[in-house]
Design a protein around this nucleic acid. Structure first.
Length: 469
RNA sequence: GCCCCCAUCGUCUAGCGGUCCAGGACGUCGCCCUCUCACGGCGAAAACAGGGGUUCGAGUCCCCUUGGGGGCACCA
């Protein structure tokens, strides 16, 4: 192992949004870089010209930014480096570590078909490996293949999975340069990692097999081996592979569902990494504690319930004013026409201590805060309407008269309502619930005396009288 | 088909040969608090996939089976 400052990288291919699995991989890389004082770099693997789009690049960058994962230096765009990749292929050719293969696609198909028919594994048989270059058909297209070792084994020393051994006889001579002169992924990754000085390759374990092949190129070039860490994939709630149907959403979908970036980081970290029994791990602690050794070896399922619980925790921890800003932003996103005045913002902030204990997401919080969004009587929902029927109207009317005389302060209001209940021979709940319904239009809310205070006397009384006789 | 990885409560996990009749968290179910719903507190049910070894002793090491997952392109 070397003693240079670690350089980590996240290398998404811009063929879609940043999904939750990629987000976690990015998080692990970022945490390790921050933990060690190393670098966290980005490389956009845009060599698939058909499927790569600028929109996807944008989505990935925005996703990372929302998650709070900042990167060092400028992102590297892989396609722009094709020339360098070609040069390395040439160098390998010159050193005898690679050779030209003139087999046509049809020929290779036939080869594979026969191997299958014979029940043998389908592998390139090395038909051009030792052929004299003068046999080459003049002017015919060719690919450049790695002259891979045919005996012995390639060992991936993985910090997560341990030593993983591959028999070289099972790895065929892979293509380095396509017949159109463009590099393959295997070549490009190795060259870029080397040029970027990448010391630690942390990525999904769907790349574990690739690591062996990439190692063969690295060895042929005599380059230093990076430290590998292949992280298990995340599965959907049903245990199946993550798909759009369940969980493989763009990270920004989580923002839209009302999750906080800090909560996402905590949840994602805990999904596959542990530090004893610690569950609540704020980012500062995460940076302090993170290591590659404690990454779990098995795939994890995504569990919204736990995410919600952690999100609720961070909401409760969050500053009231900051939360108000989030609520306003959420309300605007949901109801673009809404105008929330400075007065409303102040009420929201004042009510926030009571509100935030009752919400697990920003969506829920915003929904529960709606009774503060505008003045005027509330249209009660079905359950609230039931509480406002019958005797409640008369009681509310008499209560309003009493409240009119009460100092507008929580303790005094509570004393007043309790006295009223006693005078009417009621339990506190018998009047508090209709009161809540009149004030908020709902059957649940923060403590009703706090609601009275936040609303202010005039607004509160007007809402009560709207449902009183 | 071939190669590779994985396997502790429903879920995420702790456990790195004895201190584990297996601990924490989410969820679930009780109880307490209480003006509602939450928050908070207390408590309960709930797991070492199966079979062989190794060892005085195995959740922890080895092998097999089973079950999941990933990879086998001139895609990344």
């Amino acid at each position: 192992m070397n003693h240079k400052t670690p350089v980590l990288r996240f290398a998404p291919s811009p063929t879609g949004y940043l999904h939750i699995g990629g987000a976690r991989t990015a998080l692990f890389n970022w945490l390790y870089a921050r933990h060690t004082g190393g670098k966290f770099r980005l490389r956009i693997e845009d060599t698939d010209r058909q499927r790569s789009t600028p929109e996807a690049i944008d989505a990935i960058l925005h996703g990372l930014t929302w998650l709070g994962l900042d990167w060092d230096d400028e992102p590297v765009f892989q396609f722009a480096r094709a020339g360098r990749h070609r040069a390395v292929a040439e160098e390998m050719l010159a050193k005898g570590h690679a050779y030209r293969c003139y087999a046509t696609p049809e020929e290779l198909d036939a080869m594979k078909a026969q191997q299958r028919a014979e029940g043998k594994p389908t592998r390139y048989d090395g038909r051009w490996r030792d052929r004299d270059p003068s046999d080459a058909p003049a002017g015919a297209p060719f690919v450049v293949r790695l002259k891979a070792p045919q005996t012995g084994e390639t060992i991936v020393r993985d910090l997560v999975q341990g030593d993983v051994r591959f028999l070289n006889e099972n790895l065929d001579d892979m293509v380095l340069l396509r017949s159109d002169g463009n590099p393959t992924y295997m070549l490009a990754v190795v060259v870029d990692d080397f040029d970027m000085g990448v010391t630690h390759v942390v990525r999904g374990d769907d790349h574990l097999n690739n690591a062996a092949r990439q190692l063969q190129i690295i060895k042929a070039m005599g380059w230093p081996e990076p430290v590998y860490g292949h992280v298990p994939l995340i599965h959907g709630p049903d245990g199946a592979k993550l798909s759009k149907r369940h969980g493989a959403l763009a990270v920004e979908a989580y923002r839209d569902m009302g999750y906080l970036p800090e909560a996402m980081r905590n949840y994602l970290l805990r999904l596959g990494w542990s530090h004893g029994d610690e569950e609540i791990i704020p980012t500062a602690k995460a940076i302090e504690w993170f290591n590659l050794e404690n990454i779990g070896k098995s795939a994890a399922r995504f569990d919204f319930k736990k995410l919600e619980s952690i999100n609720g925790h961070y909401i409760r921890e969050m500053d009231d004013a900051a939360l108000t800003t989030e609520v306003v932003a959420t309300a605007k996103r949901q109801m673009p026409e809404i105008q929330l005045s400075e007065a409303v913002r102040q009420k929201l902030t004042a009510a926030m201590p009571g509100l935030k204990a009752r919400a697990k997401t920003l969506l829920e919080l915003t929904d529960n805060a709606q009774f503060l969004f505008s003045d005027g009587p509330r249209a009660p929902d079905e359950k609230a309407a039931a509480l406002l029927a019958g005797e409640a109207r008369g009681r509310l009317g008499r209560l309003a008269a009493r409240l009119d005389e009460t100092p507008w302060e929580a303790a005094a209001l509570e004393a007043s309502v309790r006295a009223f209940a006693e005078a009417e021979g009621l339990k506190l709940g018998d009047i508090a619930q209709p009161l809540r319904a009149a004030l908020t239009g709902k059957t649940t809310s923060p403590p009703v005396f706090d609601v009275l205070v936040v609303l202010g006397q005039a607004e509160a009384l007007s809402r009560i009288r709207a449902h009183a006789d």
